[in-house]
Nucleic acid binder design. Structure first.
Ligand SMILES: [Mn+2]
Ligand SMILES: [Mn+2]
Ligand SMILES: [Mn+2]
Ligand SMILES: [Mn+2]
Lengths: 226, 226
DNA sequence: AAAAATATTTAGGCTTATCTAAAAAATTAT
DNA sequence: ATAATTTTTTAGATAAGCCTAAATATTTTT
């Protein structure tokens, strides 16, 4: 019996919250009807564990589940997931803006902080940070009501030769990937020009900071531009 | 398998941390050899659960346990407990100083935040807050090495008639008690003069903010003065 | 020094969140 | 349309952390 029981009647465990968040992110990419296997892959767990958990979450009416048909979040489920995403991203801003973390160090700590139960905490944090609209990786932060604007963006890999874009986000917040970007001076707001595209492996030679570098398809598939 | 495994090889669960912290606080009052029952009472759990857990913690060498003899923290256990206390109190300062929480609102949230695993987080928080020495309830905050100075203090209930003291701490951080203090304008740094003492029930009539009020023995037993 | 009372431990269960292996359903290939 | 493959579910186990009830040890009272 934990302390946050005084705040909520409807409460989710750390594990349930992680399932909701993962399903939310998967729906954002693939639409409704998220498969057991895709959830298992995202959470690095087994399909059988997922089946167990989605039954439980269906009971709690945060998602709809029909055997062999995958799941979809309900309004309630999406609300809950959005709150977790809001918390995750606000904490990331806090860590970078106030505590001298770099953008590659925040994700894992935010994974823990997003589960802290206190409505006042997160709303006051929002105030304290000046109601930021974006997290350090360019992802939008939902407001108190769960609303946020979807920003226009496309993958760098889809940019044509000789065209220019501005880096506005990343598709992978892992420390490894972000450190690679740092090493190559790629950061949010940076202008990137595609000089040439290798059709064989999809690698790009780009101009950034008036320096030419070649990046693999895997890299350009994880950078968003505008 | 949680994310913090990347930071530590030696890691404690939320529950283990709460046991360590409770035993640490009990040792501060009663010295070595903390009984199973006293731990159970502090953690609002059953003695049989405590026996299970202290066996596990003894295995991990954070405490010494001999059947029927109670437990004592080892150096390692005390170090771990001190870190948790440090985190708890630093978060309390953060909530009050930066997020507009009042001193009666912080404890329950800090109970959650104290379990966040990230050495960088807590040390940067310390920097950000300006290395505070006291939490909002007048309790000392251990530094990075676990050192803190014990401040001179006594219970208000031990102050003689006509003598004056300054409120420097509380023995109970519950919201209920702190709200009572707020209602009666009793806060840290406040001058308190004992006007009279009722020998029958130990209640005190005190002068605070040039107002006379009468408080029960239970209240004066939870206020520290200097 | 017994007897009574209290404290502690042990035994056996329960829940949550996992897992592996096997069964069943759905999809894809022939 | 059948067979092969893949996906999903079910069945049964495990570990952590808790519980109740019973057994045992310690302490207090008589
Ligand atoms: Mn993140
Ligand atoms: Mn992010
Ligand atoms: Mn506290
Ligand atoms: Mn405190």
């Amino acid at each position: 019996m934990y302390l946050w029981h005084q705040y909520y009647n409807y409460m989710f465990s750390l594990s349930e919250e992680n399932y909701l968040k993962s399903i939310y992110h998967l729906e954002a990419i693939h639409g409704k009807g998220i498969s057991t296997n895709s959830i298992a892959k995202k959470l690095e767990t087994k399909a059988s564990s997922v089946t167990d958990m989605i039954k439980k979450l269906a009971e709690k009416e945060v998602l709809v589940y029909k055997k062999y048909q995958g799941v979809s979040l309900t309004i309630l489920g999406r609300k809950e997931a959005t709150t977790i995403v809001r918390k995750h991203r606000l904490w990331e801003v806090f860590l970078v803006d106030k505590l001298n973390f770099s953008w590659d160090e925040v994700h894992d700590v935010a994974e823990q902080l997003e589960h802290i139960k206190s409505p006042k905490l997160i709303d006051e944090l929002d105030v304290f940070l000046g109601f930021p609209k974006m997290d350090p990786h360019g992802d939008p932060i939902p407001d108190k009501e769960g609303n946020f604007q979807k920003i226009e963006k496309r993958l760098l890999s889809t940019l044509e030769e000789h065209k220019t874009g501005i880096c506005v986000g990343v598709n992978d917040s892992s420390s490894d990937f972000l450190k690679y970007l740092d090493k190559n001076n790629i950061s949010l707001g940076q202008k990137i020009k595609v000089l040439s595209k290798e059709s064989f492996d999809g690698s790009l030679t780009i101009l950034i900071h008036s320096k030419e570098i070649t990046i693999s398809k895997k890299i350009s598939n994880n950078i968003y531009i505008q």
